[in-house]
Write a protein that binds this DNA or RNA. Structure first.
Lengths: 206, 206
DNA sequence: GTCTATACCTAGATAGAC
DNA sequence: GTCTATCTAGGTATAGAC
């Protein structure tokens, strides 16, 4: 009986935990939080329900971990776009497009992150998630105002509007049956976002 | 034993049912759907838990009734504003203001209608509720386009954006501590909405 | 460490007395 | 018709064998 775990042991445990998180994410993506029971998740990962508690103290802890992983990825991607190169207005338009495109490509996950019924702990994470999104947009809006590209406005409200608007459009799918309709939706969304921020309807928007 | 209930009997039953719906609405407003157990609602109405089932076949049926009543009132109010007198642009601005003001005045109910975690049946009602809101806004936007007051755009997306934006702003309260801040929020919301619809930032908006 | 079996709790729904 | 008491189902978490 060793005093410490060997690197190999630690590695296997880590891998098992990762696998569990991955499978749980899939289950949530497919059936939502409410239907993602410990049994269902364990089945998906190929282990017994009881074994889940070797890796997480509670179902809630697992759910929070799943949410944080997925939400963190989205925030990172949006952050890179919104704080990257280009004018503030260009970045806002691009950010909206990236946000929406990723959500359309994985709508189950987007719904889970944005709106699906969930336990309180996950709801709290979601609030934080949306705040981070808003903060990113708000910063870009403020830069646009400083640069004289956008009219004076409450940037926090505009940022909240952008996240709310995109979420609303994505969660209750309008019509995205084919590829073409989806692309059209993206174009309209970006145009709406730029109007919302007060960008003059000039070049780049037909 | 009468073959039919007397009018008085029917009246008393109706009244009891109404009372139950009213109390349930209060409970939901205060603690949300998740915490509004049959027991809690029955206590609030001053009856035993079992008696609830004299009026509703299930907890779900009661919840749906509560949602429909409250949501219906909001849709009616918004509909009157959006289909009332004034130019389409004026009506949109006024509609947003009314929507937001009512939500701010009864934030618990607004949260319950727009975002609070709820069982699937209530979620379905909520979807329908948002669709009706969107349809009302979309119609006004289309009228604005026809009248040459608004630029060409996908009215459905703009309408979705307006409901999503207002919901987002109201649900995660920015800063509405005092009366003044709340009024300022309303002004900014309306300005954002008009920008979003593409109304020229002319008279009426400082 | 992982399994099986089970304890336990919450909450919706029902039965029968009054 | 309304009450009290109870039944039941679903799901989290734990105990103990292997």
């Amino acid at each position: 009986m060793a005093y410490r775990k060997t690197p190999a042991e630690i590695g296997r445990l880590e891998a098992a935990r990762e696998h569990l998180v991955t499978c749980a994410t899939s289950v949530v993506t497919e059936v939502g939080w409410a239907q993602a029971s410990v049994t269902a998740v364990a089945d998906s990962a190929g282990i017994a329900a009881g074994s889940v508690y070797q890796h997480f103290a509670s179902k809630t802890a697992l759910a929070v971990e799943v949410f944080r992983r997925a939400a963190g990825r989205e925030v990172d991607v949006l952050g890179e776009v919104l704080q990257g190169p280009g004018s503030p207005v260009e970045r806002i338009g691009h950010g909206v497009e990236v946000f929406a495109r990723r959500a359309l490509e994985n709508r189950g996950l987007a719904y889970a992150l944005l709106a699906a019924p969930a336990e309180p702990a996950v709801g709290a994470e979601r609030l934080d998630f949306r705040r981070r999104y808003r903060a990113l947009f708000a910063r870009a809006v403020h830069e646009g105002i400083e640069d004289g590209l956008l009219p004076a406005q409450n940037g926090e409200i505009t940022a909240a509007a952008l996240t709310g608007a995109i979420g609303e459009v994505l969660v209750d799918p309008l019509d995205t049956r084919d590829e073409e309709a989806a692309e059209e939706l993206l174009v309209e969304l970006v145009a709406m976002a730029l109007r919302c921020a007060g960008a003059p309807p000039a070049a780049g928007q037909p």
